[in-house]
Design a protein around this nucleic acid. Structure first.
Length: 428
RNA sequence: GCCACGGUAGUGUAGCCUGGUCAGCACAAGGGACUGUGGAUCCCUUAGCCCGAGUUCAAAUCUCGGCCGUGGCCCCA
């Protein structure tokens, strides 16, 4: 009986895995250079952690189950909440700012499609402590730096603020829960339903059209900001949010990041509070969002002291797709550098000895199928192994044959010098 | 949640419309020709009709359902 993969999951073969690791390495390297250190959290968490403040959209697609002790558990649908739980549990008293990065698989029960899987990978960061504009600007700049260093060319950064609207609603006495629901409707883009719901909340015609107007605002910084100020009039709390967004944008100037403003961005997660941003790779079509982030509040939700937090997550699989569509050349690991082949079984022990020695510094494969030299060489050749060490009667003189596969050139060398010669010639 | 198209060895495919040869081919893989030398040739071997029901004397082929895949809508990463 053969078994197929569960729906929406993928197998990664060596070729693809090498590329994924290469991209992952590059991402890590940028995170590290911005001062971030890695954390990891469990693949599953208590259901309540996930349901606490994720939003309906996430809950509808959750993988949840009971374990043998009757506990309600869920596979993580994203990583910000688990990382903040980790922070509240164990890192609250560490020096600020705290910069954490992570990389992990997440699960959502959705209809699979190009760039959308039930198991997918996210890579992201959380910056905990600073509330300053420059801190938030740096988070955006970091996301952009990663994409730039990966060599991605076609992407758009959109910055907005859920704070402006939330404060607008709060000023009108709308409870936080209701705000979340409204933001969810905005996120879905159903403007009719939005109008209806705002009416139910008792908002006046003027207030409703102000909200609709703000949501439409997209484009360059100055135009959007002045229009937004005009629309918001005397609503102080909302204006304050707008001002703090402006400060972030000012800070972003020095980072040299290009963006467009979009006050219609709502985000599907309920924990965002202020600045939000999304990055799109237009070539990916429907699943074009490759990054999402912003400033949020979760520490209190998990029983911690309030603390300023912001972060983002990349959809790793979508980044891979975007790089591919952009024609970015990726180079994976080299693979096997040298293969050791004995001339018959009597030389096998010596071959094992030599391979073991080479493995101190080289990726070395030993012929273990007792194939004829001819077949073994054919294998090495088709696998693209650059060097072969042939172990035979020359061992009596402490020597072996070193063959360069590309040129076909071959010479007798001392076993003791083998590693040194290979390191030299392979340039590794 | 909705819509369209698809599913034949590991991979790529022929056959399906017009049911009826042991389901054909290529590549890959393992072995041999060829007991110390690869990218060549020849031979052999391994390996397949997604699952289930129905129609029929007979189903890879027709019908229905399911599963899976690809893409679109919606939403997210």
């Amino acid at each position: 009986m053969r078994y197929s993969r569960p729906r929406g999951t993928r197998d990664f073969l060596p070729g693809e895995m090498a590329l994924r690791r290469a991209v992952e390495q590059k991402m890590r390297s940028v995170f590290i250079r911005y001062g971030y250190t890695e954390v990891a959290t469990p693949t599953f968490e208590h259901l309540e952690l996930i349901t606490a403040k994720s939003g309906e959209e996430i809950l509808a697609h959750l993988y949840h189950f009971k374990d043998k002790g009757g506990r309600d558990l869920a596979l993580r649908p994203e990583l910000t909440a688990p990382v903040m739980r980790l922070y509240v549990n164990q890192l609250q008293n560490s020096p600020k700012p705290l910069r954490l990065y992570y990389f992990g698989n997440c699960f959502r029960y959705e209809r699979p499609q190009a760039g959308r899987y039930r198991e997918f990978w996210q890579a992201g960061v959380e910056l905990i402590g600073p509330a300053s504009p420059e801190a938030q600007a740096e988070v955006i700049a970091l996301a952009e730096a990663v994409l730039r260093e990966l060599g991605l060319r076609n992407y758009e950064l959109h910055i907005g603020s859920v704070g402006v609207l939330r404060k607008f609603l709060a000023e009108r006495g709308v409870a936080e829960e209701e705000q979340c629901r409204i933001m969810g409707i905005i996120d879905k883009g159903d403007r009719e339903l939005l109008e209806e719901e705002l009416l139910k909340l008792g908002l006046s015609q003027e207030e409703r059209s102000t909200i609709a107007g703000v949501l439409e605002l997209t484009g360059g910084r100055d135009a959007v900001l002045s229009k937004a100020r005009e629309l918001l009039g005397e609503r102080r709390a909302a204006l304050e949010e707008l001002l703090s967004l402006e400060e972030i944008l000012d800070a972003l100037e020095s980072f040299g990041v290009k963006y467009s403003l979009n006050l219609g961005i709502a985000r599907g997660l309920d924990y965002y509070t202020g600045m939000v941003f999304e990055i799109y790779a237009p070539k990916l079509g429907a699943e074009k969002q490759i990054c999402g982030g912003g400033s949020y509040s979760l520490a209190e939700t998990f029983g911690g002291k309030p603390v300023a937090t912001s972060g983002f997550a990349f959809g790793f699989d979508r980044i891979m797709l975007a790089l591919q569509k952009d024609g970015v050349e990726l180079r994976g690991d080299e693979g096997v550098q040298v293969m050791v082949i004995p001339f018959g079984e009597e030389y096998l022990p010596k071959a094992v000895e030599i391979a073991s020695a080479l493995r101190r510094s080289l990726a070395c494969e030993l012929e273990v199928m007792r194939r004829r030299v001819k077949r073994a060489l054919s294998y090495a050749s088709s696998k693209g192994v650059p060097f072969v060490v042939l172990v035979g009667e020359e061992t009596a003189r402490g020597r072996v044959l070193l063959k360069h596969m590309r040129s076909g050139e071959q010479r007798e060398v001392e076993i003791d010098r083998l590693e040194e010669l290979l390191l030299e010639e392979a340039g590794v």
